[in-house]
Amino acid sequence: MEMFRFIVRKLVEDRVALLGVILIMALIIAAIAAPVFSTFPEDVADFHPKNRLLEPDSMFWFGTDRMGSDIYSRILFGARITITIAVVAIGASVLIGVPIGLVAGYYHGWFSEMLMRVSDIFLAVPQIVLAIAIAQTLGPSIENVILALSATYWPFWARLVYAETRSIQNEVFVEASIALGASPFRVMVMHVLPNISSSIIVRTTIGMGGTILTAATLGFLGLGAPAPSPEWGRMISESREFLPEAWWYATAPGIAIFLVVMGFNLLGDGLRDILDPRIRRSVHRDK
């Protein structure tokens, strides 16, 4: 709790990170309150051929698409898909990667080596290519995008946690707990994990941005949710036929992706400045 208050206080002081927080809050509010804020909520599925490809005006704030649907409303609903994909895929990656990294880092032996070599194999394959392969094999759907992203993202957490565990393991307090008789599980969960949590939080925040970008890429390639879905990447993909005349068609989802990814990256950078143990320790020494 004290930790949380400390982070909030520091974030408020850091203007750039605060901008990140505001952008992410905007995304969350847009996702939750999409039916309230959208001007034509039913336009996610409906189409109105007579309103096809209208320029932005007072009625259709961001213009309309090839089906005559209001782009502004669709973007708000698209935020839901973006958040779902990012949270579930990153959550799964953390749940898979952190325990693997922790176990591989704590124990020294062939099993640890094997775990890390497996994660190396996943890291060696270009992420987008692997995600395309998985999405292609299993067919385009949001579930498969999430599966593809989780399968490709977990090694980043495994590697990070592995390295941090190996370094924290040399700290005297870890050895002291072992000498007291603490079980490996206790040492890992109660001593090692809390002491490396800041790195995990920072990596997770920055990872969110990357995941959203990759998800949009998969959507753009037609591997995401099928047709009427207001997924941002898919919207940009659809707009290609009508460029450059219908300039607004790609602009709105493009800016949405840009702002959200930037928000997570700014917050991640801010959190790293606040939580990085080296920087924090020097702050304590100055006091």
Binding site: V172, A176, S177, G181, A182, S183, P194, N195
Partner: peptide
């Protein structure tokens, strides 16, 4: 190992050279 046979090990204990570092900073 220190974790094994707890009753015995608990009566043999080690006090670290640097007690500050032997406490979890968090």
């Amino acid at each position: 190992k220190p974790g094994a046979s707890r009753g015995l090990r608990s009566s043999l204990q080690y006090s670290y050279q640097d007690p500050g570092a032997s406490l979890d900073p968090r």
